[in-house]
């Protein structure tokens, strides 16, 4: 990675003394010094927090914290790849950039899913015409429909649609295959669509 890239990527870079500290602490951490490792992770976390805020200002504080945690875990998993003879900062920058890119992709997918699940016909109406009672009824209908799903399908919807996990994350968490998850979420979506459209039809057909 070029020096210029690092400078662009790390706005508000820490002072040179701190950078040396990163190197020293990481070297000690590789030797198994838990105290040095904890101090390093704390410094890195606060440094990353600022960095993520600058690079992704659209994220909520919770999302920023999620991302910081992801980067810390990746740093931990990849700590054997740091060569003490090389500077720590470009190494950290590379991991942070990778995790931020992954997160941005995940965020993009989430937005796409949200858009797909937005019913244009309904949201096209003026907000004022949506009564609170109707929202409650809709919420209860969705909740009931979700509760009526078989456990595997319910878990798939919860992980992939509500928690926004990736397929591989969900597969790892649930101990099932990606293919099984895809099938489960597909069936669940079909079932939900059927149940909810039945509810709508019943409501439309009622004399009120």
């Amino acid at each position: 990675m070029g020096k210029g890239n690092v400078r662009t990527f790390m706005p508000g870079a820490p002072p040179r003394r701190e950078m040396r500290d990163f190197d020293t602490l990481m070297a000690a951490a590789q030797r198994g010094d838990g105290g040095a490792y904890k101090a390093l992770l704390k410094q890195v976390a606060s440094y990353l927090r600022g960095l993520v805020w600058v690079r992704a200002p659209y994220l909520t504080p919770e999302d920023v914290e999620d991302l910081v945690q992801d980067i810390l875990i990746s740093l931990h998993l990849a700590r054997n790849t740091w060569d003490p003879a090389r500077p720590f900062r470009p190494w950290l920058a590379s991991i942070a950039r990778n995790r931020m890119a992954d997160h941005a992709r995940q965020y993009g997918r989430r937005v796409v899913i949200d858009l797909q699940f937005t019913d244009i016909d309904e949201t096209f109406c003026d907000e004022a015409t949506n009564y609170h009672a109707e929202k409650v009824v809709n919420f209860l209908a969705v909740r009931d429909a979700l509760n009526a799903l078989p456990p595997a399908e319910k878990a798939a919807v919860r992980m992939l649609r509500l928690q926004q996990l990736t397929l591989s994350e969900a597969a790892e968490q649930s101990g099932t295959s990606i293919a099984a998850l895809k099938v489960a979420v597909h069936r669940a979506t079909k079932r939900l669509r059927g149940v909810l459209s039945d509810d709508d039809a019943k409501r439309d057909a009622s004399p009120d």
């Binding site: 198994g32 838990g34 904890k38 945690q69 060569d83």
Partner: peptide, 19 residues
């Protein structure tokens, strides 16, 4: 929670052989 995570990761600190 991030501080808790740091505590957990630091507790796993052991000598690692650089690649």
């Amino acid at each position: 929670e991030t501080l808790h995570l740091i505590d957990r990761l630091a507790a796993e600190a052991r000598t690692v052989r650089p690649l």
